[in-house]
Design a protein around this nucleic acid. Structure first.
Length: 819
RNA sequence: GCGAAAGUGGCGGAAAUGGCAUACGCGCUGGAUUUAGGAUCCAGUGUCUUAUUGACAUGGGGGUUCGAAUCCCCCCUUUCGCACCA
């Protein structure tokens, strides 16, 4: 009895793959290209966890399968080495992040190799290396040049524990910091932004060109949040100027009874009359102190203050008061809303609380509304009333006509607004790519000339711990420099870039990892991009995946590339939980891959992850099931160990086993291509079971050795993408040919072999299964009916009944309807 | 609150287009082999039943159909997004 010696065999093949450079991709090969990408790893923690394995192992299986189908597959890997996770880890250990990151990268590279994936290590990238971040800075300058990078003072998410600003995506739904759980507050800082909002429309249009999960597209397009409506100007009473509002319901304009500004609105203080100034100032200050999550909590009662100012309704001419309330967001639309309490629930609540009148201007056709008796706003469409020339129009028409009218009188007009905000990229942190901008007292912000890149992150003895401002601000050698325009003394921007900037273009760099005079070669990336298959977590939809699309579109508009979507086809791996809960180091419930790899090997671990269930759903980790995969691998191994080499000699081809063989080739190919790894493995188990069945029940002297030899050779090929080390070993046992199994062709199946001469069909009476019958393939309904009558149970069920009709599905079923 | 997806044995899960529900694996039961344990092999394993029989079973209830896990309606549960976006 021989156990599969996975330790020696797996180590042996990894060594050979490396020695023979099996996975070094020739980017100029004439074979069809296939770029298979997984989201690269953060070297923040020291160890790969099950989530990494689950992302990387099965994707590699898919890539290997594609290689066997004749594609020139490029499967790179690298390290997203800058950023908060890496820096926090360094802070925690009290060691310089450059050191901890280098250590982690080396460690993780070794662990990644254990997966046995086809990573082309000759092209890995590390975003924290100057060779890389030089080009991240170049990218910043490109956006700056195109007017897509700008600086503004803005209220930002501030974590008082991490002492840094956070992007919206780094704030959890409950208002806590993603990293440390501290409640995030608002603070005004001068920050760099990328103008992603300028690409909102193009980002929405691009979905036509890409094959992404429907859900992800929906989620991302909701995040972009296109909203059609109108901008409406309300002239100020008693002074120059107007307040601009955005609304989707211009049809309700005659129902406006007040205006509400966000506390951060630029006119908030300016237009407040002196008798109200104290209250308004206090209100604005308290709004500033309130966290976003509290402000945006829907259950919170609305508050606000009157400013003493009035504006005039551009259509009705009515004067209405201007209020300030923190339920209005400064970052959406124009930061001011026209309040229509009769037809907007939020305005209704606000009006009732502060005794502001409610007006009905949209009549409910089913149930006539009276302002005094309303208990909630009527927000549906209806017929316009009390609206001057617009009376009797439907809401839908009114929205259009009112906007049109406003445009013609120069008081606004149709407008589109997006939920998407500009991308805040400044970080008051050390471990990131320095922003290549020099601030000169005379010339203002000046870009660092491209020749001077990279702006190196100073090393040496730097206090990189977070202190509320950028650690670089106090590094004299770094911060003090000359203005590139006037030559006078100037200071560098002390902030570093959000790591999402680094990761927004890494898939370009893989293709030109060693190029030192430009970030990438247009000819090469035009040939290799977009990525054919991208696999990574669904949690990146509104972050990394959106940013990457934006950056790609900006590079396209610059004329550097001829495609404007980076990822043609996208899949998300599901999540592996433990006892139903998300695995995390802090909870201490993370299953450790190493234990299982040590005990069963890399292939078994990978197979088990794939076998657990639907790849895109994931599942709950269970230690027990893995033994089944271990048995399976050993059953394969024993088959070779016991049978090979098979003596000469052939005979009758066992039809049923031959059918199973071809069916297995067919369905495994389809399943792997479709990421249905669990069923692919099931099919391979069925084949192994069938072979054991054949050799068990056929006397050895009658074995068709030629056929068995073919079976064993085929198994080596079809198991190879799923269990690469094992596949390689089996191939080397049964084939004299040199070289790797992954340069072999995926076997063809014989469609003729799939057909049985005699098929078993289901016999139903009135839709219920009452038996089965064997008939010749392709037989007609009469023949099937005759066969059915010979089945005892059928006869019994038909006794005393008249046959009304027969439904016959060829080679599948006969349903006899009888009364 | 809004939106989306999903509910199948003791467990993980299979079942293009509606057409033999529970493939494959775990676990469990029995047997073979073994000094024993382990490993391996064989058989069985949805529920009830009068047990080689028959009935009932895909979250619950209705419906369409010769036929429904699959399609339609209502309800329940779970998960995931979004959440004062004007």
């Amino acid at each position: 009895m021989s156990k599969y010696p996975f330790k020696e065999i797996e180590a042996k093949w990894r060594r050979i793959w490396e020695e023979r450079e099996c996975y070094k991709t020739d980017l100029n090969s004439s074979k069809p290209k296939l770029y298979c990408l997984v989201m690269f790893s953060y070297p923040s923690a020291q160890k790969l966890h099950i989530g990494h394995w689950y992302n990387y192992g099965p994707t590699d299986t898919w890539a290997r399968f594609k290689r066997m189908q004749g594609y020139n597959v490029f499967e790179p890997m690298g390290f997203d080495a800058f950023g908060l996770p890496a820096e926090n880890y360094a802070v925690q250990r009290g060691v310089h992040p450059a050191i901890t990151t280098a250590e982690s990268v080396d460690l993780i590279r070794e662990q990644l190799k254990v997966i046995g994936a086809m990573y082309d290590w000759s092209r890995d990238v590390n975003t924290s290396s100057p060779d890389y971040y030089k080009w991240t800075q170049w990218l910043f300058l490109l956006l700056y040049k195109r007017g897509l990078a700008y600086q503004k003072k803005a209220p930002v998410n501030w974590c008082s524990d991490c002492q840094t600003v956070l992007a919206n995506e780094q704030v959890l739904a409950n208002g806590e910091c993603q990293r440390c759980g501290t409640l995030v507050i608002k603070r005004d800082l001068k920050q760099w932004f990328f103008k992603i909002t300028e690409y909102a429309e193009k980002l929405l249009e691009g979905y036509d060109k890409i094959d992404w999960p429907k859900k992800s597209v929906a989620q991302q397009s909701n995040w972009i949040g296109r909203s059609e409506g109108a901008n409406i100007h309300f002239p100020l009473v008693g002074r120059e100027g107007y307040i601009e509002t955005f609304t989707t319901r211009a049809d309700t304009l005659f129902g406006v009874t007040h205006l509400v500004l966000a506390p951060e609105h630029h006119l908030a203080l300016e237009l407040t009359s002196s008798e109200y100034i104290g209250g308004v100032e206090a209100y604005i200050e308290s709004a500033r102190q309130t966290s976003d999550i509290e402000r945006e909590s829907i259950s919170r009662e609305k508050t606000g203050v009157f400013t003493g100012a009035y504006v005039r309704n551009p259509l009705s001419g009515e004067e209405v008061p201007v209020w300030i309330a923190d339920y209005v967001l400064s970052t959406y639309g124009t930061g001011a809303v026209m309040a229509v309490p009769g037809h907007d629930q939020r305005d209704f609540e606000f009006a009732r609380k502060y005794r502001i009148p409610v007006k009905v201007v949209i009549q409910n056709p089913e149930n006539s509304l009276e302002a005094d008796k309303m208990t909630e706003a009527f927000t549906e469409y209806g017929t316009m009333v009390n609206s001057g020339e617009f009376n009797t129009l439907s809401s839908q028409d009114g929205i259009f006509y009112a906007a049109d009218k406003l445009k013609s009188i120069g008081q606004g007009g149709p407008a589109v607004t997006y939920h998407l905000r500009d991308w805040l990229i400044s970080r008051q942190r050390y471990w990131g790519a320095p922003i290549p901008i020099i601030h000169c007292p005379k010339c203002g912000a000046a870009p660092v000339p491209e020749n001077d890149l990279p702006v190196l992150l100073p090393k040496g003895d730097i206090d990189f711990k977070p202190k509320g401002k950028s650690p670089l601000a106090v590094v004299d050698d770094f911060i003090n420099t000359e203005c590139p325009e006037c030559g006078g003394p100037a200071k560098r921007d002390p902030d570093t870039m959000d790591t999402f900037v680094c990761s927004s273009w890494y898939y370009f760099r893989y293709l030109c990892a060693h190029l030192d005079d430009k970030p990438f070669d247009s000819e090469v990336v035009n040939r290799w991009l977009p990525v054919d298959q991208y696999v990574g977590g669904a949690d990146h939809i509104n972050g990394h995946l959106l940013y990457s699309r934006f950056i790609t579109k900006a590079l396209f508009d610059e004329g550097l590339i001829d495609f404007d979507e980076p990822f043609k086809c996208l899949r998300h791996q599901g999540m592996i939980t433990n006892l139903g809960a998300k695995m995390s180091k802090s909870k201490g419930n993370a299953a450790n891959p190493e234990v299982f790899i040590d005990r069963y090997g890399s292939d078994v671990f990978r197979l088990y992850l794939m076998f657990m269930g639907d790849y895109e759903i994931g599942g709950d980790w269970n230690d027990e099931g893995i033994v089944g995969i271990d048995r399976f691998v050993n059953r394969i191994w024993r088959l070779y160990y016991d049978l090979w080499p098979l003596p000469e000699g052939d005979g009758i081809i066992p039809q049923e086993l031959n059918r199973t063989l071809h069916y297995t080739i067919k369905s495994m190919g389809e399943d792997i291509a479709d990421f249905s790894f669990n069923t692919a493995i099931s099919r391979s188990m069925e084949l192994i079971n069938a072979i054991y069945g054949y050799i068990g029940e056929t006397p050895k002297s009658e074995w068709n050795n030629e056929f068995l030899r073919k079976c064993l050779k085929t198994i080596g090929l079809i198991i190879a993408p799923l269990a690469p080390h094992l596949g390689e070993e089996l191939f080397s046992i049964t084939n004299e040919a040199e070289g790797t199994v992954f340069d072999q062709k995926w076997p063809e199946y014989d469609a003729g072999a799939l057909l049985r001469d005699v098929v078993e069909i289901a016999i139903q009476i009135n839709g219920r299964l009452r038996g089965t019958a064997e008939v010749n393939r392709n037989c007609d309904d009469n023949e099937a009916f005759d066969a059915a009558l010979n089945v005892q149970n059928i006869e019994k069920h038909l006794a005393g009944k008249n046959i009304v009709k027969k439904i016959f599905i060829k080679d599948k079923l006969l349903n006899i309807v009888a009364k």
